[in-house]
Simulated scan of single mutants.
Amino acid sequence: MTKNWWKLLAVVFIIYTIIAGLLFKVPHLAILHESIRNLYFHVPMWFTMIMLFLSSVIYSVKYLKSGNEQDDLRAVEGVNVGVIFGILGLLTGSLWAKFTWGTWWTTDPKLNSALIAILIYLAYLVLRGSLDEEQKRARIGAVYNIFAFPVMIVLVFVLPRMTDSLHPGNGGNPGFGSYDLDRNMRMVFYPACIGWILIGFWIKQLRFRIRKMENYFLSK
């Protein structure tokens, strides 16, 4: 039980996020209005994706050093779950855009860069699926993964800041500050980020265990 405290914390934070996110007071701002509550779901999805991709690239480096198959499994499952959260980030962002910008998608550089980053990681999964030999698949996948992470960081955090953007925090458009992310919202936003990140790693752990069992039975 003591080893699973973080899972209980994840459940508590997510339940709290859902309840408080829908009921707690939020700033009444032009354009955003009640849609600002999506902040508790949209942004944590991206934070979770980034943390999962980071853990994945760490295990890819470990695999290249150790050759341990378990490290490769953890790396690929980090990408699998990270892509899921990235897609959820795109979907929640698209929904938010419809209510604030009046369209599901724009040519905004932040949106396009995020989509390209997801496609890069989908290509990683396709690449692995196209290789039959296990060690070759793991080595090539690890190298690809190591280069994919900094490219993703550039696409999501660097390039959008160099151009005009509707998205907060990019192209001179101020991010969430005390004006909109007030004390009441911070009380929900921070637990939401922690909760979703923990849920992401919980899912990754479950997928890793399933893959281990599958490999065990296939080897028999």
Rank of each mutant, 00 (worst) to 15 (best):
A97N: 07
I15V: 15
K204M: 09
R186M: 15
L22R: 05
L88M: 13
Y216M: 14
H28S: 02
D182K: 14
W105E: 04
A75D: 03
I140K: 01
M45D: 01
M49V: 04
W104K: 06
T163A: 04
L54G: 09
E34T: 02
T106F: 09
G78A: 11
Y63S: 02
T107I: 05
Y216E: 15
N215D: 09
L155A: 06
I203K: 10
L23E: 02
W46N: 11
V26E: 09
F217Q: 14
V81I: 15
Q70L: 04
I197H: 03
L127Q: 01
K220Q: 14
G78R: 10
Y59L: 11
L131E: 05
I197W: 01
L131K: 03
L119Y: 10
M187P: 01
H33I: 03
D108P: 12
W6E: 05
L119M: 12
K65H: 05
L111I: 11
F147K: 02
L115T: 01
F189L: 10
K136N: 06
W196D: 01
S165D: 08
L90W: 13
I194G: 03
M152F: 15
R74L: 13
N145R: 00
V83Q: 08
W96A: 00
F47N: 14
S35N: 11
L111A: 08
I210D: 12
V61E: 06
G171L: 05
L32G: 02
P44M: 07
N173K: 02
H33D: 13
Y179S: 06
R209D: 13
K62C: 06
K136M: 10
S219W: 04
